[in-house]
């Protein structure tokens, strides 16, 4: 690649405890390059979601620091957008209004610019014709697309996604994964994607960070980008390379889980 990865998002000795519960016990270090797609893969309760939430500013580290472009992250803001697994869109707004809601608090855009942007992102995620429908009138996959479009419309540089496709059926999930990867490459976004699905992590990410069960620790990093390249298609999923990588990764994850998976 032309550009050398510069540290964009940095976890620097981060720990987290809620009351007496140590969620991230040992200081956690990680660097994420600009425009990199990183998947946090690990069993439930391993602290991966907490780490991601701290990037979003929704939780604060107990010690250590998370920096974005050298600046410590504080309160949540629109540069770090979240996509949740459930309740990801507002049921009282139409699909179009949900996407536009991402820009509600932006004062740097005129109403007309907002409308143009909303349309652009609706189109990007293929929801243009559902603009006037309500979220409960569209499928679960479309609801997750609403959330992605809203986050992009808000102008997020970093997308933080907490098992966003966890509730979808297998076919929709594959389709949405391919789409997310395409959007991420096109719009050059940095993504932190939390999942416990090995295949999902490998298919989406440039780099997969494998977590152990508590105490939170990185047990392996899988450089998917070198193995599979940057472009991901649904056909690749059936290829030998992907299959071999998947088998390796599952071995690593099993070892990390210590037979508890």
């Amino acid at each position: 690649m032309a550009t050398a990865p510069t540290p964009h998002l940095v976890f620097d000795g981060v720990t987290k405890r809620f009351g007496s519960v140590q969620v991230v016990e040992q200081p956690f270090d990680l660097e994420v390059a600009r425009h990199e797609f990183v998947a946090f893969l690990g069993p439930s309760g391993c602290g991966k979601t907490t780490l991601m939430r701290m990037v979003g500013g929704l939780d604060q580290p107990s010690s250590g620091e998370i920096r974005l472009d050298g600046e410590p992250v504080g309160r949540p803001d629109r540069r770090r957008g979240m996509v949740f697994q459930s309740y990801s869109s507002f049921p009282w707004l139409t699909v179009g209004q949900n996407v536009a809601f991402g820009m509600k608090y932006r004062k740097d855009l005129s109403e007309q610019e907002k409308a143009v942007r909303a349309e652009r992102y609706l189109d990007l995620v293929g929801l243009y014709e559902f603009s006037d429908s309500y979220p409960n009138q569209v499928s679960g996959g479309m609801r997750q697309r609403i959330a992605i479009a809203r986050t992009l419309a808000a102008g997020a540089d970093v997308l933080l996604m907490d098992e966003p496709f966890g509730a979808l059926d297998a076919l929709r999930r594959e389709q949405l994964q391919a789409e997310l990867r395409r959007i991420q490459r096109r719009d050059a976004k940095t993504v932190v994607f939390v999942t416990h699905d090995v295949e999902e992590a490998l298919f989406l990410a440039d780099r997969v960070v494998v977590f152990s069960k508590r105490p939170t620790r990185i047990v392996a990093e899988i450089d998917v980008k070198t193995r599979l390249g940057e472009e991901r298609t649904l056909e690749m999923r059936d290829g030998d390379d992907f299959f071999a990588l998947r088998r390796e990764a599952i071995g690593v994850v099993r070892a990390a889980a210590g037979g508890e998976l």
Binding site: G56, G57, L58, R75, P76, D77, R78, R80, G81, M82, F84, S86, Y87, S88, F90, F101, G102, M103, K104, Y105, R106, A147, R150, T151, A154, A156, L160
Partner: peptide
């Protein structure tokens, strides 16, 4: 749901 609040915060709501 908490997610509603958190979604609002991450798009810049007070």
């Amino acid at each position: 749901p908490n997610e509603y609040f958190e979604t609002a915060y991450t798009i810049g709501a007070s």
